[in-house]
Design a binder for these strands. Structure first.
Lengths: 233, 233
DNA sequence: CAGTGGTCTAGACCACTCG
DNA sequence: GAGTGGTCTAGACCACTGA
């Protein structure tokens, strides 16, 4: 059967967005059911469904069975952030990337680190400190602990040539991660590595990753003032 | 025709993820085509397509026509952030919310603000400064400019009772927004509002929103040290 | 130019949930 | 119990792009 195309899911979404943005459908208002919309637009219900599903994923509408689809009271609540490899991050900003491994030691993980990873008993881990440079100026300082029992290969990795960040991303998959953003002031170590004054404000990203329930690595990334993490809503 | 169900798109995705996480399919490796996978799983191609499309949206795989689907070299590169109403943010963290309107004036917007909004000529705007409190302690300081020609109603809004943040979210839709995160140190004004020392590190969120090409509002939100913005990968 | 993903259709059944 | 979204199927055509 020749399926003559009425509307694409994108054109449907565009029209639905127009009605929301124009105020025709106010926040909280109920949107007609998929069957009605499909009839109105002259397309299959599947097409309407996809348009509405995408709008629900970005938080523009809320959907529940039986009660239908409503315009969200707080339109657009989700932004997606890119989590790049640091080298790419530097190069995308037009800099020449280089890294320096400041520390590379096996140590007993302190309790704060074990807590982040969800480990109860003592554990020997790889403690790596790296300065990431852009055009030979400090871009970011990374303080990382690696649970090498989950990825023994890292003990033989050429971390002078490839940063721990990049080596892990390329060799150790993970299934789950936490990430958080905050601000802090520079302690002595970090200030020295970044060549800034002690107490300077820093943008701090903390990330921990697991493969299933096995912790892989946890790290803090310290960015000096001026660095921005941007995205679009 | 009774469509007997083979696999759901979720079960397909789960199995594909397993193969990636187990190392069976390494980063960069090519994944079989949709037709082959559909045959293997005994389901429709549509089902495989949806599973792979979702995995592409989260950055786990990369898809191109003709060349097929490949495991991403940098697995998982996107995180979604919730952009809440501040009152909800405070209440979700267990605090009692209150806000104080520190400033509410019509002013000529300085050039820095006009630049953020993409306006060339002079423009009179509403300049609002709000302290958001959690359990009567400062939670965040907001410095906002509103292009009231795009939403004249705000001039009559009871901003003492409902914060500018919440009033705008509930009454003025937007189609596009920028958001960025960084760190800075507290200036005198902000330090006073947040009851912290001048120079303290702050977590700074900047957001600008438009309706189509009309600028709506731009603001900076200053969070004291200790505040974290978290999400899951 | 041929292979791969991208998408639409029409129809069906299922699952949740509100009244 | 009935209405609404959630999803699967089988088939078709289209669009991009790399060999």
């Amino acid at each position: 059967m020749t399926a003559r195309q009425g509307h694409s899911h994108q054109s449907v979404q565009k029209e639905l967005l127009r009605r929301i943005h124009s105020g025709e459908w106010l926040p909280g208002a109920r949107i007609p059911g998929e069957v009605d919309l499909a009839e109105e637009f002259g397309c299959a219900r599947t097409t309407v469904n996809r348009a509405l599903r995408q709008m629900a994923e970005t938080g523009i509408v809320e959907r529940k069975r039986r009660s239908g689809t409503h315009v969200a009271l707080t339109p657009i609540r989700k932004a997606t952030l890119q989590i790049p490899i640091i080298r790419q991050e530097v190069e995308e900003r037009g800099g020449v990337y280089r890294h320096m491994l400041v520390s590379n030691r096996r140590e007993q993980a302190p309790s704060s680190i074990r807590a982040r990873l969800g480990l109860s008993g003592p554990a020997e881990m790889l403690h790596l400190q790296t300065v990431h440079l852009s055009d030979n100026r400090p871009h970011m300082f990374e303080d990382r602990w690696v649970n090498f029992s989950a990825s023994p290969d890292i003990l033989e990795a050429p971390l002078e040539d490839i940063s721990p960040n990049e080596w892990l991303v390329r060799h150790v998959p993970y299934s789950r991660g936490d990430i958080s953003f905050s601000a802090c002031s520079a302690s002595g170590d970090v200030a020295e590595a970044l060549e800034i004054a002690i107490g300077s404000p820093l943008f701090l990203v903390e990330r921990t990753t697991w493969m299933n329930t096995t912790p892989i690595t946890t790290l803090k990334m310290f960015y000096p003032e001026g660095f921005r993490f941007s995205t679009t809503l």
